[in-house]
Design a protein around this nucleic acid. Structure first.
Length: 510
RNA sequence: GCCCGGUUCGUCUAUCGGCUAGGACAUCUCCCUUUCACGGAGGAAAGACGGGUUCGAUUCCCGUACCGGGUACCA
């Protein structure tokens, strides 16, 4: 069987896209691009009660930021449109009805109250959550227990009903998962899932099978949380007569909380102070904003890189990969089976590495807009690039560029004179006064010249340069940080250097 | 409870029967840097447990334990 690779990411638009979601996108994307296939985005908005406006748009923005743009989607269009399940509503019913006709599904008229009563009535300590299964279904109001005439009558009267799959009694359903190998289930353990809801919308189970078939999906990758319902899907492919077209499955491991147990959730980020969503997400109902990796100052390259390494590696010690390298090297059989605890420190490390290896010209727009927010207007882009190259190795997140570079463009507002005062004396005061004169007269303004002059003057004053470097640094940058002092002096120029020394001297005098 | 997955340093992981168990993050020590970083050298740190199979098991099989997922007219 040699068909075109087509994969899909099928989120429901209920909120921000979290790490796990983006990683599922990434693995789909990598696989598709490697195989010369297509990556489809399908919106699974079959639950109207959970629909959140803005969520779909957010998904597109996120994918764009990550550089994982779909080939087909509600936005990009494509030969299998529409790509929003709510707009495909009409197509699902016929398949559900066909299943009923073929004896693989049945109508069920139980009300929510009936179901609730069932769960209470059949609840025991051994079976705390009774399912609507092959045993229970004989005790409920459905087309298996009711006569044909009664069923027709109920439907005719407009009584709400759902269509449920009729799980076979003693079968083993098995399939080969690309990551896990052979996985099998006993049908006696699986319940009669609802396929078509009372409002006429399909559930995930029906919709995913119908759409994957209609959209000719060749490989279906999704989170591990779907593994238990895989037998339902497998059976549906079979009952609908599409078995030969069934995609190959891969169930991806989950991303877990860094501490404690369970899968990573938005709340963990809030609690532990790190982002979980790719980008800022503002809940339209509560107006609460959850921070995203983008806004925290992550580069998309770093974000994609760290996500890829959460559950996959190429078997070597390499940890830094570009998207293109990932496309080349990715393979589903090297994806782990077990979940991975998310480590924010390591995530920061990836970003740090990416900032270091990214060209100043690429970093420049982001740094510039960060400075603009601080009311710094940068007109000299050559200077900006020089500054970025000088400080980027000490920046882990993009906003770190602000404290690390702002003093190149503006005299420090706060000067940490407290760190100078304890060891300040008249000799040093004299030295800096002389330094001002020396620098004012100097015709050369390169870092090496400035350092030479500085040290000669120190020697003439019988002072160790070491005692003077820190005060000098604080005068220029405001605190104990930043690149080499003479590099800074060279870049900010004579006027600023002298001005900042004078300013600090006056602060120390008062 | 039941079903399905999983289990190597604190964390992410390498190992596809030969291991003195390797790398990275974090941590510690030292060097470099008269700031903060970067960088360099080194240290500490792991195969859940019990049975098999085998000349040999981290690796294969079976139990047990623990962790995770599922058990909705949510995805």
């Amino acid at each position: 069987m040699n068909r075109k690779v087509r994969v899909r990411f099928a989120p429901s638009p209920t909120g921000g896209l979290h790490l796990g979601g983006v990683r599922t996108v990434l693995f789909n994307y990598l696989f598709a691009k490697q195989q010369g296939g297509d990556f489809i985005l399908r919106i699974e908005d079959t639950d109207q009660t959970r629909f959140v406006s803005g969520a779909e748009d957010y998904i597109f923005q996120t994918l764009e930021w990550c550089g994982l743009v779909p080939d087909e989607s509600p936005k990009h269009g494509g030969p299998f449109a529409p790509y929003r399940q709510s707009e495909r509503k009409a197509m699902y019913r016929q398949y559900a009805e066909q299943l009923v006709k073929d004896g693989y599904a049945y109508y069920a008229f139980d009300t929510p109250a009936d179901l609730e009563a069932m769960r209470v009535d059949f609840k025991t300590t051994e079976n705390p959550s009774p399912q609507y299964n092959q045993h229970i279904r004989t005790k409920m109001r459905n087309s298996l227990t009711l006569g044909d005439d009664e069923v027709k009558q109920l439907i005719g009267e407009g009584i709400p009903y759902v269509i449920r799959i009729k799980m076979p009694e003693h079968e083993t359903v098995s399939f080969t998962d690309m990551i896990r190998g052979e996985v099998s289930f006993h049908t006696s353990q699986v319940d009669d899932k609802v396929l078509l809801k009372a409002d006429g919308m399909p559930t995930y189970h029906l919709a995913v099978v119908v759409d994957d078939y209609l959209m000719q999906i060749s490989h279906a990758f999704r989170g591990e949380e779907w593994l238990p319902s895989a037998p339902v899907h497998l059976l549906l492919w079979k009952y609908l007569g599409w078995q030969n077209a069934m995609p190959q499955w891969a169930h991806l491991p989950l991303i877990l909380k860094p501490d404690g147990n369970g899968k990573l959730s938005k709340r963990d980020g809030d609690r532990l102070g790190f982002p979980v969503f790719a980008m800022d997400w503002t809940d339209p109902k509560t107006n609460e904003t959850t921070i995203g990796f983008k806004e925290r100052g992550f580069l998309p390259e770093a974000f994609v890189n760290l996500l890829a390494m959460l559950g996959w590696n190429d078997g070597t010690d390499q940890e830094l990969f570009t998207l293109n390298e990932l496309i080349q090297k990715f393979s589903m059989d090297r994806v782990h089976k077990g979940g991975a605890k998310f480590d924010y420190e390591k995530a920061r490390w990836y970003n740090h590495e990416w900032i270091k290896k990214t060209e100043a010209s690429i970093l420049a727009p982001a740094v510039q807009s960060l400075l603009t927010e601080k009311n710094i207007t940068v007109t000299n882009t050559t200077l900006l690039h020089t500054v970025i190259n000088l400080v980027k190795e000490r920046c882990t997140l993009l906003p770190d560029f602000i404290p690390q570079s702002i003093f190149f463009f503006e005299a420090p507002v706060q000067v940490d004179t407290d760190s100078i005062k304890p060891k300040w004396d008249e000799k040093k005061n004299l030295f800096f006064t002389e330094l001002i004169r020396a620098y004012e007269l100097s015709t050369l303004w390169e870092a090496t010249d400035l350092e030479k002059e500085f040290k000669e003057l120190a020697a003439a004053n019988q002072l160790k340069p070491g005692e003077l470097m820190l005060p000098f640094r604080i005068m220029l940058v405001g605190g104990k940080f930043g690149p080499g002092v003479f590099d800074i002096a060279a870049l900010i120029g004579k006027e600023d250097t002298v001005g900042r020394i004078k300013h600090t001297l006056s602060l120390l005098a008062s």
